[in-house]
Design a protein around this nucleic acid. Structure first.
Length: 282
DNA sequence: AAGGCGACCAACCGCATTGGA
DNA sequence: ATCCAATGCGGTTGGTCGCCT
């Protein structure tokens, strides 16, 4: 006996959401808050499964979402967090307010992976590719080792400049020795900010155009959506002279300007259940 | 102009986890 | 302790768009 489907899929719509569906879902959530996703489609008058509604809301419609490409800083954070957390996208996303796990996952798979490979770093292990390849070439040796014996891990590396201003990989141990620093091992990021800076600087040269284009794109997406029952001004989004919603300011929704970021605690605190609703808006 | 191709990303699928009965 | 519904999560798919030939 297989698992029951999450909902009765007969007659349910799939695929891209229409502006009308978005409006219905948005109006419903803003009126009633988030509760019982299974019931949402019926109550909101949507021919969608509850799961689909939840995804659409969390990944696209939530008013607190940032849009557009990840900034250099955000990208650095993602790489750093990924080195510590692995593919736990929701955990990573919880450290980046306004970003969704889906968005970060997509960005990782399409942009960051490539950049890291270009830098000679394995995106899975965050170690230099040459070492990873060596390890893959000697699987038998590894297998022959007794289980109790600890496998000697290669040191974690970061990218730095040598005296000739050429990029070079230096192990953390070497760096720490050089800097005479003590470090709590559990908190050592596998790639240091210096390295990330280089990665991001390189990337920003190649992707700067897409950054600017996406921000105009995102406002048009919201522009296209018309929410007759929803007053964006409540969320710090005001009309400009052209009658167009001034949604983005420095690539961040004005919503975040409200209340000195006090609501971020809600987002970042794992103890607060998601059902406590978005930042006390409801 | 049009067809091929790859990149991007929204959305889906199915397993895992959680929480209440 | 167990079951089951609801929700969360991560991997994958497929549609769209832009670039190249």
């Amino acid at each position: 006996m297989g698992r029951q489907p999450c909902c009765d899929k007969v007659g349910l719509k799939k695929g891209p959401w229409t502006a009308d569906e978005d409006r219905k879902l948005m109006n419903f959530i803003l009126t009633h808050g988030q509760c019982c996703w299974r019931a949402v489609p019926k109550l909101a008058g949507l021919l969608r499964c509850g799961k689909s509604c939840r995804l659409r809301w969390t990944n696209y419609l939530r008013p607190d979402l940032k849009r557009g490409l990840l900034s250099d800083n955000e990208e650095k954070m993602v790489i750093d967090l990924h080195s510590q957390l692995g593919n736990r996208w929701s955990k990573i996303a919880s450290h980046l307010p306004g970003r969704t796990d889906n968005e970060i996952k997509n960005h990782w798979n399409t942009h960051i992976k490539k950049k890291l490979r270009k830098m000679g770093i394995d995106p899975l292990t965050h170690k230099p590719l040459s070492i990873v390849e060596q390890e893959e070439e000697k699987p038998l040796k590894k297998l022959q080792k007794p289980m109790e014996q600890t496998v000697e891990e290669p040191p974690n590396y970061s990218l730095t400049k040598d005296s000739n201003n050429k990029n070079m990989l230096v192990s953390y141990d070497d760096q720490l020795m050089a800097m005479n620093l003590e470090y709590c091992v559990e908190e050592v990021p596998m790639i240091d900010p210096e390295c990330l800076e280089l990665i991001c600087n390189n990337s920003s040269m190649s992707s700067s155009t897409s950054t600017s284009s996406s921000s105009s794109n995102e406002s048009s997406i919201l522009k296209d959506l018309q929410f007759p029952d929803f007053d964006w001004s409540d969320y710090g989004i005001h009309n400009n002279n052209n009658g167009v919603g001034n949604i983005m300011e420095n690539n961040v929704m004005s919503l975040w300007d409200v209340d000195d970021f006090s609501s971020w605690d809600l987002l970042l605190n794992d103890d607060i259940p998601q059902s406590s609703s978005t930042f006390g808006l409801f």
